[in-house]
Design a protein around this nucleic acid. Structure first.
Length: 106
DNA sequence: GCTCTGACGATTT
DNA sequence: GAAATCGCCAGAG
């Protein structure tokens, strides 16, 4: 079966990189953009995740903003917080406490 | 090729 | 520390 996704090369690359993030860890849009070779394209990365073709295969909930705030989530920010806390990430007031400790670097 | 939009980033007030 | 501002890049029409 062909996976006829309408995703572009950039989007596919972003999603692929995101799958490298282990459970219990999080990354930022900027780091992810850097990983795909497009430093500064944090916005474009967010756009790619927004399409979110596979909310399970791609841990979109592990992507947060560079300042430690969660950012957003296609299924709802509340859902994102719930999943993160369930994976061992401490989230308080829409913000990650031990941000630098759970931050995954490529 | 231009314009608008958006799960962003960093700086300044 | 929160809000406002400018700059950034990729996709869609």
């Amino acid at each position: 079966m062909k996976k006829n996704n309408q995703l572009t090369s950039f989007e596919q690359l972003v999603l692929k990189k995101l799958t490298q993030v282990p459970r219990g860890k999080v990354t930022t849009y900027a780091e992810l953009a850097w990983a795909v070779g497009r430093p500064g394209a944090a916005r474009a990365v967010g756009n790619a995740l927004n399409k979110n073709p596979h909310p399970v295969a791609v841990p979109c909930h592990r992507v947060v903003k560079s300042d430690g705030s969660l950012g957003g989530y296609a299924l709802g920010i509340d859902k994102k917080i719930e999943i993160l806390k369930r994976e061992g990430v401490t989230v308080e007031k829409g913000r990650i406490l031990d941000f630098s400790k759970v931050l995954w670097k490529f």
